[in-house]
């Protein structure tokens, strides 16, 4: 019975096993990146970046069809251009990063729409928008796992400056010049993970795999490392449960995964011990000291 519901889909179908590997790899990379984005108050920056990537991927799609290489390259170029451009403007001028990012991604989006319409074809961009987690081929799977591994390695190396730049940017500036390069490297990681995610979940939903688990994890712990673990766990669990939901009910898998993550977020908001709704409404008796 339980086997039928939870294990059989993966045991019987190759495409489900691939999807499973895909979402687990995505969760592993997106979890920590999402937590850092949230703590750096960049939760919405991911969304902007996803919009920036969309035109790039669409141009790749226009040029070469559903070609992994072309779409990945297009997405990376557009994403890096926007992330690095906005980051550079924010560092070099008085403009805050959120405003710079908004300016850059809107230009990128408009440029993408313009290019697509110049081509004059009404292309089916559903693949780009919503991903194809149930049709991951070897190359895509390799790309996703490679991006996740790379992300974890880079985060391990940059962890200290990344954390310090989030807590106390002034101090980091006073002891080291690593702040700006670290930040740009982090933005690059965000773009990479979004590009990895869009093959499975689509450009717009890929952000969900980052931000929803991270926002949920915030409600369960005050400790950074635990929070990252928590986010990875929630991301991977959402992936697995979302795939099962999509399999048993026959609904699209990308939205199913993100909706499950959304459910986890709702539960966290309600019951999370760190500032959740219920613990606030029904506080326990105060301590003696």
């Amino acid at each position: 019975m339980i086997y039928d519901y939870l294990i059989a889909p993966f045991a019987e179908f190759d495409f489900m096993r691939r999807a499973l590997v895909g979402v687990l790899a995505l969760g592993l990379g997106a979890g920590p990146v999402g937590v850092l984005m949230m703590l750096r108050r960049m939760s919405l920056a991911g969304d902007a970046m996803a919009h920036a990537i969309l035109p790039g991927a669409a141009i790749g799609f226009l040029a070469a069809g559903l070609n992994l290489f072309a779409m990945t390259l297009g997405g990376l170029v557009a994403g890096f251009a926007v992330a690095l451009g906005a980051g550079a403007v924010a560092r070099a001028t008085q403009m805050k990063e959120d405003a710079a990012l908004a300016a850059f991604y809107l230009v990128s989006l408009a440029l993408g729409v313009l290019l697509v319409s110049l081509r004059g074809s009404n292309v089916d961009l559903l693949h780009v928008l919503f991903g194809t987690v149930l049709a991951l081929d070897d190359a895509t799977l390799l790309l996703i796992t490679a991006i996740s591994s790379f992300t974890l390695v880079v985060l391990a190396v940059l962890w200290r400056p990344l954390v310090l730049e989030s807590v106390d940017p002034g101090f980091l500036r006073s002891v080291s010049r690593a702040g700006a390069p670290t930040h740009l490297a982090f933005l690059a990681l965000v773009v990479l993970n979004l590009v990895g995610g869009f093959h499975a979940l689509g450009t717009l939903l890929a952000v969900g795999m980052m931000m929803l688990p991270a926002a949920s994890a915030r409600f369960w712990t005050r400790e950074l490392t635990v929070m990252v673990g928590c986010a990875v766990l929630i991301a991977c669990a959402s992936g697995v449960i979302g795939l099962l939901v999509s399999y048993h009910w026959g609904v699209p898998s990308g939205p199913a995964i993100i909706l499950v993550a959304g459910g986890a977020y709702a539960l966290s908001v309600l019951f999370g011990p760190v500032g959740g709704l219920l613990p606030r409404l029904a506080p326990r008796r105060h301590l003696e000291a």
């Binding site: 703590l39 954390v163 106390d168 002034g170 101090f171 005050r222």
Partner: peptide, 8 residues
Amino acid sequence: AEIDRTFP
């Protein structure tokens, strides 16, 4: 100091 006191 521009410290983010909410950072865990």
